[in-house]
Each structure stands twice: as C-alpha cells, then as structure tokens.
Design a protein around this nucleic acid. Structure first.
Length: 425
DNA sequence: TCTGGGGTCCTAGGACCC
DNA sequence: TCTGGGGTCCTAGGACCC
C-alpha cells in the first residue's frame, strides 16, 4: 500500500498558523502581484471563488463577505512544507515529495500495522507540531491514493480522522463510480473532453473501455492509468532528483517600456537561474529568454519574443549567463511595446564535474566558480542579493508583501513566534 | 487599472548515421 | 514503372501536474 499525505488548503493553513484569528473564516492567498487566487479556505470555496480567479474580478465579493485577502509568502510555505515532510517521512522507509503540499509514503509490507491508527497518528502529529491539517489517502496504487484523498476532503464529517483507506475491490469500485472522469489524476481538460465525447463520465466508465481505445487517445499514460485504477501499481515512488530545467519568470506590477529597465530584469533572472544551477551542482548548455506584452490587453499592440542559444561551454557562472541573456535580449527586444512579463529558462544540464568543453572557445567556468561560490555563501549568510552583479539594481519591480509582525519574526529567525502556535488535543 | 510561476513526460517528425 | 533496411538523436509541441 501507498499513502498520500496532502495538506488541506495549504497556503491558507500556513497563514492561519501565523494568525489564529483566521480560523473558520473565509481566507484567500494571492499569487505574485496579488494577481490570482492560488489558495482558498473551505469558507472561501463555499463562496464560489474558483481556483486561479483574477483577484480584481472578485474584489466586491471579497469585500462583501469579509474575505481576508493575503499576499503569498513562499518562504513561510517552504518552511512549513519541510516540517510536514520531515515528520511524515519518519513513518515509512521510503517517501516521495510530490509537491510543496503533498508527499507519498511507502507502506509496503506493513502487515502488522493497523494503517488507520498509524495514519491517524501521522496526521495528529503534523497538526500538533506544524499546525497544518492534512488528509491521508491510502490505497494499493498512487492513483488510487489520490482518489482516497479526494474522498476524505469531500466528506470531512465521515472521516473525522482525515484518513481513508481503499483496501477492497468493493470500496474501489464504489469510489470509481463516484469519481468524475475529469478528477482522475492525469486527466486534464483536453482528455476530459475527449472522454465525455466517448461517453466516459466517471472513472468507472473508463475501466469498461478496451485498453487499446484508451491507449489510442492518451498514449502510454492511458494504459498505465487503467491499471492504476484497477489497483495494479504502475507508478513507483520516485527518488528526489536534480531538476532538468529551471525557469525564473515574473509579471511586472507596472508595464515596462524602457529598454535598460527590462534588460536589468532579464539579467537578474539569469542570475537567479545561475544560483539555482549552482545549488544542484549543474551547468546548463542552453539558455532562453522570453519577453512579452500583456496578453489580456487586446487594446494594446502585442508582442512576444522568445530566443534560445546553445552555449559554447556548459556553465553556471552568473556572469556568463547574464551576458548571454543580455545578448539574446538585444536581439529580441523591440522598441515601442509595453512589456508585462519576462523570463529566463535554462536547460540541457550536465553535472558540474562532468563538463565537456569546446576545443576552440575559452572556458571561464573554473575561473568563475570560486567567486560564485563565495557570492552564494555570503548571500546565504547575510541575505538574498546582498552580493550581486553590478548590472542588478536589487530593486523588485514586481510583487509587494503585506508584512505582519509574525511574518517578519519568521523571516528573521526562521522560527515562528511562540504565540502563534495553537495546540489541539 | 487590475489576470502566477514552475515543473515533468511523451510523441511525431526531421536530420543524420551506416 | 521500378529506388533498402535499420538505427539514433534532437526538437517542437502537446498533454499533464502542483
């Protein structure tokens, strides 16, 4: 059996751990620039606020129902996430961190353990020590864990422990007859539409279709999904691995028209990419940049520029990557547009110690690396961007944060103030 | 006025090899 | 008229996830 530990309304729950008065009230957390709703409390969901909703469209509703609206605080969410992971993973020999708010545990061979009790204990400890409510779904396959988890969240009154186990053919069949096809893990909007066209409305309906048909529509994913839903495991826990690509991109609060201002953003994003590369000891062989106008403003002239380059030598030097990004920018920038978004993307990684270098091009990687490492070290010690390249202004032209005393305390000490912990019996 | 950011895997087709 | 057989690698695009 596998277990899926999934934090309930994760970002909102993190906020509640900072501010206990938010309990049982409608709360939403907004994305960068306070643009979209990215987390909702159950009370907010009940008001009909959809995931991803543009905040400005719901302003009146927020006001009318006294919804607490918060800017995202990712440092906090990462800290909380790590806490949940550390506690949960101590209960199983193997685990897989699936996302910031979910992890799978391997309960394989837990013959003499009463899973219900065991999982309840995990949930209670996470609640007690991290102040984060979680739901736990247990089943013979990862896909069915997702189903079990959804059932827990959908019927909280029937599962007061926050745990549901799909451990018999009957339970599984009943669950799949209940589950809409679009809610199956791996079925997105496109596939859901195709499924409905073919008369498949519930997960159970899919099992009635011949495998060859599913395979034709969904490829290999479909074949795996079919078995996973039947309870035959196709997906194993995956070990944490290095990233294969890294993106740093932002929308801006205000549109940028000035060339040098936009170039500065691009170079800064390249530096962040380089930093992330060094963190996992990788070098990249290619780099791309993107700049674009506001895609929602049909009244303004639109332009999207995207350009990639294969580097002469694999690198994670901030200097080299910023320079390359700047050169691409020079080619892709067009005067006269109002830019709303930009990004830098690196890919084609090789390990830092297994680089193959060009015969003809100068390789500065080894010259730069000690400087870069020193920079990283200082920034870790004294704070982000304390040491930066001369091309960076260090100003953010995006984002704003609603600071609270509790959050400032957290940022400074990386622990939460005592008063914000609440204890549940 | 105001609409996020970051990933993964698979597949088909083209270019190339012998 | 008729033009082999078998591979690999790379890329772009499409699907999905949170």
């Amino acid at each position: 059996m596998f277990a899926l530990i999934d934090c309930n309304n994760f970002f909102v729950s993190c906020e509640r751990s900072l501010d206990a008065t938010l309990q049982e009230k409608p709360v939403v957390v907004l994305s960068n620039n306070d643009g979209c709703v990215i987390s909702r409390s159950n009370e907010a969901k009940a008001l009909g606020i959809p995931m991803g909703a543009p905040a400005y469209q719901f302003k009146a509703l927020f006001h009318h129902h006294h919804v607490t609206v918060l800017s995202a605080k990712f440092e906090l969410y990462n800290y909380k996430s790590q806490g949940v992971i550390d506690i949960s993973k101590s209960y199983a020999p193997e685990h897989e961190v699936y996302s910031i708010d979910e992890l799978f545990l391997d309960f394989h061979g837990f013959k003499y353990v009463k899973l219900q009790t065991y999982a309840t204990e995990i949930r209670n400890r996470v609640q007690r020590e991290m102040d984060i409510p979680v739901s736990i779904g247990i089943a013979p396959t990862k896909t069915l864990c997702k189903v079990a988890n959804r059932i827990v969240k959908k019927f909280p009154n029937q599962f007061p422990d926050g745990v549901y186990i799909l451990d018999s053919k009957e339970k599984i069949e009943k669950a799949l007859k209940w589950l809409s096809i679009e809610d199956v893990w791996g079925i997105g909007r496109r596939y859901a539409n195709k499924m409905k066209d073919a008369g498949v409305y519930k997960a159970y309906d899919l099992l009635q279709k011949p495998e060859i048909w599913v395979r034709k529509i969904m490829g290999i994913h479909g074949a795996r999904m079919l078995n996973e839903l039947k309870g035959i495991p196709q997906l194993d826990l995956e070990k944490a691995s290095d990233k294969k690509s890294i993106t740093v991109s932002r929308s801006f609060m205000e549109m940028i028209t000035e060339k040098d201002a936009l170039r500065e953003r691009i170079e800064t994003f390249a530096l962040y990419c380089a930093e992330k590369l060094r963190k996992q000891n990788s070098c990249c062989k290619s780099l791309s940049i993107y700049i674009g106008t506001n895609r929602f403003r049909k009244d303004l002239p639109a332009y999207n520029g995207f350009l990639s380059i294969n580097l002469d030598n694999p690198t994670n030097s901030s200097i080299v990557l910023a320079r390359a990004a700047s050169q691409l920018f020079e080619q892709v920038f067009v005067e006269g547009f109002s830019y709303k978004k930009a990004g830098v993307f690196v890919s084609n990684f090789v390990p830092e110690n297994a680089r193959i270098t060009s015969l003809f091009e100068d390789d500065v990687q080894n010259k730069h690396l000690p400087i870069m490492r020193a920079m990283d070290k200082l920034n870790r010690k004294y704070g982000k961007d304390k040491i930066r390249l001369g091309s960076m202004t260090g100003e953010n032209t995006y984002g704003r944060k609603i600071m609270s005393e509790a959050y400032e305390h957290f940022l400074k000490n990386n622990t939460l103030p005592e008063a914000n912990f609440r204890f549940f019996s």
